[in-house]
């Protein structure tokens, strides 16, 4: 049910912003907006269907947690 709500919200956002964007006639603006909206709707649908979404913090922790642990060992 929530997946449909997310898609509806995506459609509403497109209806709100696209007319102005098309009138502005800037290709780049329209592409970036469309890409972000697709990403947002896709992620929202995936989340509402309880699909496992990779956590960006895992990647950040992979790189930076050893640095933090090293600092802790240095000071403690």
């Amino acid at each position: 049910m929530w997946a449909i709500v997310v898609m509806l919200i995506g459609a509403l956002i497109a209806a709100e912003e696209l007319p102005d964007l098309i009138r502005g006639k800037r290709r780049g603006d329209i592409w970036l907006f469309a890409a972000l909206l697709l990403a947002g709707t896709g992620l929202g649908v995936a989340q509402s269907l309880r699909v496992e979404i990779p956590n960006p913090l895992d990647a950040i922790s992979f790189v930076f947690a050893p640095v933090g642990k090293f600092l802790e060992a240095l000071f403690m």
Partner: peptide, 10 residues
């Protein structure tokens, strides 16, 4: 608005 949608999931 699209960024807001992504941020909610994030």
């Amino acid at each position: 608005l699209p960024l807001g949608m992504i941020m909610l999931v994030m």
